[in-house]
Design a binder for these strands. Structure first.
Lengths: 338, 338
DNA sequence: TATTCTCAGTTAAACGTTTAACTTGTTTCC
DNA sequence: GGAAACAAGTTAAACGTTTAACTGAGAATA
């Protein structure tokens, strides 16, 4: 069995309180005593029990991390990387991350994540869109809550977001710089704030360049921004509009789908059509041609979320903090000067 | 603050022991009392504190999951999916998985994963190859240890492995079936048991088919089985041997690298050269042509590991268990009849 | 009728820490 | 020279459970 504080105390001939104070580097303990105790601690390879600490301190040193199962199972490791960022940062602070997924069609009869009920987390990070009724239920437990890559409209939670508007501007400006004027936008559900903001960036960039906004070039009726819907959106757009020369897809998955449609229908990329995505997922480089895109620093999103959590945990500072993580234009081969 | 067992006890006018017994469905409690207590539990939304439980039961309900950081950061989500499998299975059993990565060049001065020291796990799952000195140090703590996709030669730990030999046979037989005789093998470090066994499968299949084993067709001197080394290996092999018609790469990453080399040098796949990989990673489908490969059920590896852990935890049955997870041939477009 | 059993609980110790409050001996201050 | 301050600890309660050992009342047994 592992050594306990008692073993250390008796071997060092001091009280357990003294051992505890030594561990916490309290200056009420003389240097000699401290040295003696530390020696015994090393000898016995003593490490305080987390269970005991958690109980007495009424903290856990754990942070819950919630996302929907379909986000976690997505082919592109987007949220997985956000999780990783959180995990790395947490380790440096001596925290553990308890990951759990919830059904994307979470109903009120479904159980809450267990770590909330059994009080084994000090706070919860919610990544990506999750069902609203779940958020409502969690909120009742008064745990510090941080959102990443998603916000509830009008809610007061601290949040880490991608600078989607800026990304939309960057992407659209790139196409404009390349001489394009007839630029299509492919998006999923426009209710999703990320997609909405990317579209906002698109509109703003067009406006700044004095290019007329053409609603026919915008497709935002797909429920999910995935490959298949990207294919479908491209089909709709290109059947109706013969003069589109460039496409800005709201994410890489849709961009890939659109690329497939175009290739299947004899368009050459980037010769006939330029295409730019958003996210910079791993496969982009493997595509033919490699996809120009807006890079989202996924790891950073995760680390920022954890840092924000630490801040909230320290300050009890509940006034809303919003961190906007900057994005970057990555030019590859799928876009070309007109 | 959340309700405690005391709150329940006083509101239900029973002792806390009674509440505890009700929770554990002990039949020493009369149906009426049980009903009464359960009602109060529901009213107060009471859930036992995990910290307290952990402390008194001297268990944690946590399992540690260790892999090296480069395995976790790999582009292809291989170990991430194994982790997922473990995580899903764990949730069903009410366990948490504490994930941690260690440096792949772990030195004895580096700290051990914290969850081992502070006793916050009941057992540890080790995924993929990790440094031997780390294993030695962990072993001292006498925690139940399970390996996934890696074994220490001669060690007695329970382990979940891919059926690599069978996979090697499947892959090679497929090429033989397609009429190939001059089949190259591209591998990374042959010391790695997985790669070694895939090569064994290759050899055995050739032997069974009565095809002469040609050492010149085998390249196993790359340190890591990644894309870049796949490219390099293909270069070496095809510069020396003009008559190779098929390649079996020890994993998809190397296969993709080899494909790139071949394309760069005017070979047409699968017309000039057939190529088969191993793993079935996500990008395979996106390749041109889509890669024929051996599918490894990654999620299953993770769930099996967790199940094995539960078994060990229950039975204290330390005699070595070895679970071999079967693989499957996935025929796509990168292989072709000669 | 006295004894033993069974039932349905209760009491209290234990798990391994942290920390407020106390103690005891020595300095410092006026 | 006595009070006050300080230094270096120790004592004991508390955190929220589980569980072995106990209790007291009524039922069954001899």
């Amino acid at each position: 069995m592992a050594a306990t504080i008692k073993d250390v105390a008796s071997k060092a001939k001091v009280s357990i309180a003294t051992v505890s104070l030594v561990i916490h580097d309290n200056d009420r303990i003389s240097p000699e005593t401290k040295k003696k105790v530390l020696k015994v601690i090393k000898q016995l390879d003593y490490h305080p029990s987390k269970s005991a600490r958690d109980l007495v301190s009424q903290k856990t040193g754990n942070i819950g991390f919630i996302l929907t199962d379909d986000h976690f199972l997505r082919t592109e490791p987007f949220y997985t990387r956000i999780f990783l960022g959180t995990e790395f940062e947490a380790r440096d602070s001596g925290f553990y991350i308890l990951l759990t997924t919830v059904a994307s069609d979470y109903s009120d009869n479904d159980p809450l994540p267990r770590f909330i009920l059994d009080r084994s987390v000090d706070g919860v990070i919610i990544a990506g869109k999750v069902p609203h009724n779940l958020i409502d239920r969690i909120a009742k437990y008064k745990l510090p809550l941080i959102f990443v890559d998603y916000v509830l409209e009008g809610d007061e939670y601290p949040v880490v977001l991608i600078d989607n508007i800026q990304g939309g501007i960057l992407a659209t400006n790139h196409l404009i710089d390349y001489g394009h004027k007839n630029i299509a936008f492919i998006g999923g559900d426009i209710q999703h704030p990320s997609i909405y903001n990317r579209l906002m960036g698109y509109s703003r960039a067009l406006e700044n360049a004095g290019i007329k906004h053409n609603d026919k070039y915008i497709h935002t009726t797909s429920p999910y921004p995935d490959r298949q819907n990207g294919y479908g959106a491209a089909k709709v757009l290109f059947k109706k509009n013969k003069n589109i020369t460039a496409v800005f897809a709201c994410n890489d998955a849709m961009a890939i789908g659109a690329m497939h449609y175009l290739k299947d229908n004899g368009y050459h990329i980037p010769h006939d059509v330029s295409i730019i995505g958003f996210d910079d997922v791993e496969v982009d480089l493997m595509l033919d041609p490699p996809l120009t895109t807006i890079r989202v620093p996924k790891i950073d999103l995760g680390t920022e979320a954890f840092r924000l959590m630490m801040e909230v945990l320290k300050n009890k500072n509940t006034n809303r903090k919003k961190i906007l993580v900057p994005v970057e234009l990555i030019i590859r081969k799928s876009t070309k000067k007109l």
